[in-house]
Structure formats: C-alpha cells, structure tokens
Write a protein that binds this DNA or RNA. Structure first.
Length: 293
DNA sequence: CGGGGCTCCTGTGCGC
DNA sequence: TGCGCACAGGAGCCCC
C-alpha cells in the first residue's frame, strides 16, 4: 500500500510538473558566478560544433578560428544574456555572447556527448553548451553593445538604473497587460515567465490588469518585489523546474519557493483558493484568483 | 502602442 | 500498438 502511494505520488509529480523552467536573470547570474571561478584565464584549445545552427555569427569557420587559442578574460551578464570577453591569439578583444533561451545550459566539466558546442580548455576540462531544443544563440562579436538585443534592453532590475519613479511613470503610460509587459525585455531586463508570475503574486496584482490601471502603491510594491524575488532566487542559485542547471550541472532550489508557477489546480499557500493557469500574450500565466486583484 | 499569429526546435502526451 | 498532431515557450518578425 505504501509503495503504491509512493509510486502514485511520483506519478503525480511527473504529470503535473511538465512546465519548463527557463533561465531568467537569477539563473544566468548563477551560471556567471560559477563559471567565473573556473574558466577565467583558461585558453580554448579546441572548439567542437555538433549543431551549427546555434552559431548565429560570424561564419562557422571564423567562429572556430577566432576562438581557438583565445583566453577567457571576463564574464558579463545583461538581462538573460551572458557575454564572455575573450582575447584572441592575435590579441584582439571579442565577445562570445550566449542566449540560453528555453533549454540552453552552460556546464563546466567533462565533455558532454549531447552538447551542441564544446570548448576544450587548457586544463583538459570542457565548457559545454547544451540545448535540447536548440533555440539558443551563440555569437562572436567585436562590440557587445552594438548587438540589437543589448541596445534595446531595458534597465537591469538589480542596478541603480532601475528607479522606482521611472517604473511608476512608465507603468502609468502603458496600456498593455502588466504580466506581458514584465516579460518585455525592452521594459525591464531579465524577467521571464517564472519571476513575472511570482512577483505579481507577492504584490497581489492580477496579471491581466492593464499596467496603467495600477495605482502608485501597487507599482511601488511591484517594483520592490521584483528586486526582492530576483535577489532571493540568486541566493537559492536559481529555479530548476526541469531544464535549468548551474555552471556545474546542478539544480537550483528556488523552485521549492514557488507560490503560483507550475501550481495549476493546487491550493494557494496563502488563501487556499485554487491556482489558475490562463494565457496572456500567448504565454501560460499562473495566478491565484483569491489573492490577486 | 497593443495584440495576435507565426517562426525557430524537440520531447512529450493525447486522440483516433 | 502506433501514427501524427498539438503543445510548451523566449524573442523576433509581420500584420492589422
């Protein structure tokens, strides 16, 4: 009987937790912090490309030849984008930008047979780019600021560029629904489906409300909660719902703290109402109808 | 501006 | 049992 219950329990976990977790700001920040400790000043001794479509620019040949014998100097994160500053064998500075999109992973360790691109390092270890759905993008560019994604990106939510008065003002000017607006990287950088849902829950705001209909107190609260939830998630080394892994291939623990994300049909941890899942802007959106008004 | 739909991709789940 | 379709989603694109 006990064994049957245990099997049923895991079966339920498997069936209900199908939603994918995407690498958002806290996950990308965790990868950056992990990799900084192990790859800086290491030289790339081989570039192995198993899936050429993930390399967007320049040509494969140039991508390989520039990276070969380059050294990692620095890692930068902007929103969900990671950029590795490298110095080539010809002493030129380039940036290897990596967008993980849905299922991308950057893992340091031994070579992974299912990697899409592997970089062999001078110490014999590998930096592997894994990506089941291959929607991620690698680019090698001279000027990272010139990339359209970077040029168009909104403020970093954990930096001083993210100001409460600006946030209140811009929110009051937008008619779009607040949840899809939070996902817009031009509005604020680094927030994805998980943290948008969770920040709105803590702020008790209905994700379907028009941004301009939030009052000043609500906008202020949301601003504060965006910052606090991202900081908390970084402390937990990110959320691993399914695909996300840190720089060493390990899971993060923030998913244990979810109030609404992936909890459709389950009781709200605050008011016991049932968590609902609706579509907003084409994206699955979780919320508690009891708590969020 | 806002919103809808399509595209990229692959594993999974469901209907017939 | 098995085939084929729908779905999941970040982000760019097009269109109304």
């Amino acid at each position: 009987m006990l064994r049957v219950s245990i099997i049923l329990f895991y079966f339920c976990l498997l069936t209900f937790n199908l939603e994918k977790a995407l690498p958002e700001l806290p996950e990308v920040e965790t990868i950056k912090n992990d990799l900084e400790k192990v790859i800086l000043n290491k030289k790339i001794t081989a570039v192995i490309i198993h899936r050429s479509s993930v390399v967007k620019e320049p040509s494969l040949k140039k991508f390989k030849s520039l990276l070969l014998d380059s050294k990692f100097r620095k890692i930068i994160r902007r929103g969900k984008l990671l950029a590795f500053e490298i110095i080539t064998a010809q002493k030129e500075i380039y940036f290897l930008s990596v967008h993980l999109r849905m299922t991308g992973q950057l893992v340091y360790g031994s070579d992974d047979p299912k990697s899409r691109v592997s970089f062999k390092l001078s110490n014999g270890f590998y930096l592997c780019y894994n990506d089941q759905r291959t929607l991620g993008e690698l680019r090698l560019v001279k000027d990272i600021q010139a990339l359209n994604v970077v040029k168009n990106m909104g403020p970093e939510p954990l930096s001083k560029d993210f100001r409460v008065n600006d946030f209140i003002k811009y929110i009051s000017m937008r008619k779009a629904k607040i949840k899809p607006l939070l996902l817009d990287q031009k509005f604020v950088a680094g927030i994805g489906n998980i943290y948008a849902a969770e920040a709105l829950f803590i702020s008790k705001i209905d994700p379907a409300r028009n941004a301009c209909d939030l009052n000043e107190q609500e906008a202020k609260l949301l601003f504060k909660n965006i910052k606090s939830i991202l900081k908390k998630a970084i402390k937990c080394r990110g959320s691993s719902f399914s695909d996300y892994r840190d720089g060493h291939g390990n899971k993060g623990t923030f998913s244990n703290n979810f109030y609404v994300y992936g909890r459709k049909g389950q009781a709200c941890l605050v008011c016991k109402d049932f968590i609902q899942r609706i579509k907003l802007g084409g994206r699955g959106t979780y919320f508690c109808p009891g708590c969020q008004k």
